[in-house]
Design a protein around this nucleic acid. Structure first.
Lengths: 208, 208
DNA sequence: CCGGATCCGTAACGATACTG
DNA sequence: CAGTATCGTTACGGATCCGG
């Protein structure tokens, strides 16, 4: 049978024909932070089912959005063009994170994307410097300059401040439920370097 | 049974929990151009099935994104926040419009959205004025100013130029397959007012 | 006629077992 | 490890029916 498509001459419908099916944009999200192995994808997409992941990957490959490298998958340049759409959707969904009901999965590997969609340029006009966030096993660097943010997964720049914490503390801080001062006092947060820069970065992300 | 959700503490996943199902974002697209009746939605969403449309609308209503008025549906303020995500997805999908395979549906009522996602600020820095596009039964106004575009469905402003054409010609012009000069010569395009402004608006939309 | 609701066949998805 | 194969369940699509 023919694939299920909208058959509309509409840019939105065409985009959804490619990436509108279940799990597809979450696979893209995973690959936006760099190439991943099959089992890494599976680990960050609990519930997807191995057959469906394989189907999605091959569909994305046929669509020219994903390419398989040496034992890994990554986005093509065309696939990377989805970043703006992913960030826009995430900005819409961000307010819903407060409703933390029950058992939910979270991975520190999403931080590079979270930093990007949470960043509010109007709150960071004069912010300048590089912050490295170390959460669990993940390290992300954010470089602020001229009201813009650049992120890098690895140690690309010399950080002005390094922040180390665990996932639970990081989430509580993000939600504004925990004050950095308290976290530091109880030893679950460590700040090495320009402490003022770290504080101002929090405000740039809308953390009260 | 519980609704099918991703159960991830991720802003993208939360957004998709609300609007990630089939047809949902197309319903939102319809309502982005103003309130619509049930049958109007049905007409612009061929293939959706009456039961599914009803389900989507009530789901969106429960999610606080849609409200039903007097015999019509419209977006709530929260629902309108989806515009950025819809436009971002449309920008990604726009290049795919060239692959016009077979029978596809199109409606002039999508023009307000099409004008927005197709607009390229960097090509319209000094563009200034109001253009009214009349295609089939639809009228859209676009006001250019300071490298930005504003659109309105009705006759909100005094247009500097009014362009009248039919859907087929409009699509051919958009695709760059037809030169406005030729269209005008054969009588399928009518330009009343500031002709230079109309030409420059085409370039702002990336039409060669 | 509009705005759905009901019913049913088909396609998509989810979970697990299995294989190179 | 990286997927197929299989199978039960859910979602979707199309048609028909129904109340105001």
């Amino acid at each position: 049978m023919a694939k299920r498509e909208y058959r509309q001459h509409c840019a939105l419908a065409r985009a959804l024909d490619l990436v509108g099916e279940r799990w597809t944009l979450l696979v893209v999200r995973e690959l936006l932070t760099g190439s991943k192995r099959y089992k890494e994808l599976l680990a960050n997409l609990p519930g997807i089912g191995t057959n469906l992941l394989a189907t999605r990957l091959s569909d994305l490959e046929r669509a020219g959005l994903v390419e398989r490298g040496d034992r890994s998958y990554s986005l093509t340049p065309r696939g990377s063009e989805l970043e703006a759409a992913v960030l826009a959707l995430a900005r819409f969904g961000a307010p819903l994170l407060a409703e933390a009901d029950g058992e939910v999965y979270w991975s520190a590997s999403w931080n590079p994307i979270a930093l990007k969609y949470a960043f509010r340029p109007e709150r960071a006009r004069r912010l300048r410097g590089t912050v490295e966030y170390r959460v669990d096993d993940s390290r992300v660097q954010a470089r602020f300059r001229d009201g813009e943010i650049e992120t890098a997964a690895e140690s690309s720049w010399r950080p002005d401040v390094v922040v180390t914490t665990d996932g639970e503390t990081f989430l509580a801080l993000s939600a504004g439920e925990l004050d950095p001062r308290d976290a530091e006092a109880e030893g679950s947060l460590e700040i090495a370097g320009d402490r003022a820069l770290f504080r101002r970065s929090l405000r740039a992300f809308g953390v009260s």
